Computed example of a mutant assay.
Amino acid sequence: MKTCDIAIIGLGLMGSAALHELARRGADVLGFDPLAIGAARGSSHGSCRIFRRFNFESEAYTALSDRAFAGWRALESASGQTVLMPSPILEAGPPGCELVAKSRAAAAAAKSRIMGPRNGREANAAFPAFNLPEDWDVVVNDSGGILLAERALRAFRAGAEDRVILETAQIAPTPSGIRITTTREEIMAAQVIVSAGPWVADLVPSLRPHLMVTRQAVGWFAPARPETTAYGEFPIFILDGARGMVYGFPDFEGRGVKAAQHDHGPVVGADQWEPPASDLELDIPSATLAELVPGAAGAVIDRDICLYTNTAKADVIVDDGNEFIIDRLPADPRIIVASPCSGHGAKFATAIGAMLADMALDPKLKAIDAFRLDRFSNFA
């Protein structure tokens, strides 16, 4: 039977980052994923994700963002390709908006001075595509970017293609190791990293009570005023209005303005990628653009589905949910879980990949407290 020291099940951005880092350090590692890069499934598929240095979810993410940023630049240097395109990020909402307040607080905690528009009137003047209410709170962070997700996946796997097995894999702990079974072979691994996105509970059933997979519709819109939405003229945006939280990108691909609702969609199974996003599912981002970003509003010219795998609220170390799980299974520390990412983990992939490599190579290393499994009572 073939053997390896470390197996990675799931090669999205997290798993591929861990594969890259472990291979770079000379580890005996294999990665398993049935999806080839470019497939229209998997939580890391598609062309782009948002990179934010200052995160409204938690001030504690700033240090993780900084580590990730250094990782993205190192990946660019190693691959000779651009992976992270600099772009300002505009966040806005009604007066007193929690989103804006928390992003400002994260920047202040990092002793970073925020420049630029602070209300809707100033934002509309700076970025003519917008028509925000003049009294809305606004913060513009200049340290954001467009993460080129598919290109990053290719860069992570470059030079490690012989370590990638394009097969669905199952795991079974045995006294002598973790048996990895595919349709073609069996491999015995000393340790396993499970980073399988919406399929993680199929591999680690004890996680199922703490996870919720939701269907998120994504659209690309033909901008009414293309000159106002081009890359370099128009920021990434996150708007927290009456219809919910909607995010979007400048038209950096010539494909239109990508926009979607960040609030959780309907709960679905891990394989429910079909049917394509409907006009009804895209009604909220479409209406939000028409009202608040008329320069970007227009017909839907492309559409996609993303699945968020969301974490429930913890009950030991109390949190608000939607936090990462990155930890060893208490029942079998040979199994490291690196999922879910609750719809906002992609930007941290290089930092989390390095964290996973550290944990796999040092059995005594503990996970970050906020990401540990023992914040849930059935793992405590």
Results as ranks from 00 to 15, higher is better:
T3D: 09
D5Y: 06
L13D: 05
L13T: 04
R25V: 02
A27Q: 07
D33Y: 06
P34Q: 05
I37F: 09
A40Y: 11
S43I: 00
S47K: 15
C48G: 10
R49N: 00
N55C: 13
L64R: 07
D66R: 15
F69H: 15
S77D: 15
S77V: 15
V83Q: 11
V83T: 12
P86I: 03
G93T: 09
G96M: 01
R104P: 09
A105K: 12
A105T: 10
A123W: 03
N124K: 03
F127M: 04
F127K: 02
P128V: 04
A129V: 06
V140R: 05
G144S: 01
G145C: 03
L148E: 09
L148K: 04
R154M: 14
R157H: 15
A160T: 13
A160V: 13
V164S: 02
A169S: 07
S176Y: 14
G177L: 09
I178F: 07
I180K: 07
T182V: 07
E185H: 13
E185R: 14
E185C: 14
G197Y: 00
L203G: 07
L203F: 07
V204T: 10
L207P: 00
Q216H: 12
A222R: 13
T228P: 02
T228A: 10
T229W: 03
E233L: 14
F234S: 07
I236E: 01
I238T: 11
G248V: 03
F252T: 03
G256L: 03
G256H: 05
V257P: 00
A259E: 01
A260Y: 04
D263K: 02
D263V: 01
P276H: 02
S278N: 04
A287E: 11
L289P: 01
A297Q: 06
A299G: 13
V316C: 10
D332M: 08
I335V: 14
V337I: 13
G345I: 00
A370K: 12
R372F: 05
D374T: 09
D374K: 11
F379L: 04
